[in-house]
Computed example of a mutant assay.
Amino acid sequence: MSIVEPNQSIGLTTISRTVASLAVSVVHTLERAVVGEDRMRTARGNAWEAVCADRARADRRAELDRLVAELAAARAAARRQQEQREHQPVG
Score class of each variant (00 low, 15 high):
70 E>S: 14
45 G>I: 01
48 W>S: 01
20 A>Q: 11
20 A>W: 04
77 A>E: 15
59 D>I: 07
61 R>S: 06
69 A>D: 15
3 I>H: 04
86 E>S: 14
25 S>G: 15
67 L>G: 12
14 T>L: 08
41 R>N: 05
36 G>M: 06
68 V>E: 15
24 V>A: 07
87 H>L: 11
24 V>K: 05
26 V>K: 04
85 R>D: 06
86 E>D: 13
52 C>R: 06
83 E>D: 12
47 A>C: 02
1 M>S: 04
78 A>E: 15
62 A>G: 13
60 R>M: 12
87 H>C: 08
33 A>E: 09
73 A>C: 04
10 I>H: 06
3 I>W: 03
35 V>E: 02
33 A>Q: 08
70 E>K: 15
43 A>L: 10
45 G>Q: 03
12 L>E: 09
17 R>F: 03
42 T>R: 00
18 T>W: 03
27 V>N: 10
85 R>H: 05
69 A>E: 15
69 A>F: 05
30 L>G: 03
22 L>P: 01
27 V>C: 11
36 G>L: 06
28 H>Y: 08
68 V>A: 14
8 Q>M: 09
7 N>M: 01
12 L>K: 03
15 I>M: 03
43 A>F: 06
29 T>C: 07
88 Q>C: 10
34 V>A: 05
88 Q>G: 08
69 A>H: 11
25 S>K: 13
35 V>G: 01
88 Q>Y: 06
41 R>Y: 02
8 Q>K: 10
22 L>I: 13
12 L>Q: 10
41 R>F: 03
11 G>D: 06
52 C>G: 02
5 E>F: 02
65 D>K: 14
79 R>L: 12
7 N>L: 00
57 R>Y: 06
6 P>V: 07
29 T>K: 13
63 E>H: 14
66 R>E: 08
11 G>L: 03
91 G>R: 13
74 A>V: 04
44 R>T: 08
11 G>A: 03
43 A>E: 09
21 S>Q: 08
58 A>F: 11
83 E>Y: 11
14 T>P: 00
44 R>N: 07
46 N>Q: 01
32 R>S: 10
45 G>R: 13
50 A>V: 04
59 D>C: 03
32 R>H: 12
48 W>I: 03
8 Q>I: 02
49 E>D: 04
36 G>I: 07
48 W>P: 01
4 V>D: 05
33 A>Y: 07
17 R>P: 01
37 E>W: 04
78 A>K: 15
64 L>H: 05
57 R>A: 13
54 D>W: 00
37 E>Q: 12
8 Q>W: 00
85 R>F: 05
20 A>P: 00
81 Q>D: 09
14 T>F: 09
17 R>D: 10
62 A>S: 15
68 V>L: 15
89 P>R: 14
60 R>Q: 12
84 Q>Y: 07
5 E>H: 07
46 N>R: 02
27 V>P: 01
91 G>K: 09
26 V>P: 00
73 A>S: 14
53 A>F: 03
36 G>E: 06
76 A>F: 02
38 D>E: 15
10 I>C: 08
45 G>T: 02
82 Q>H: 12
82 Q>E: 13
36 G>W: 04
21 S>P: 00
14 T>E: 15
7 N>V: 01
4 V>M: 09
56 A>I: 01
7 N>T: 09
82 Q>D: 09
55 R>M: 07
26 V>G: 02
44 R>Y: 05
29 T>N: 12
37 E>F: 04
77 A>Q: 11
14 T>Q: 15
37 E>H: 06
25 S>F: 09
85 R>E: 10
29 T>F: 10
63 E>T: 14
69 A>Y: 04
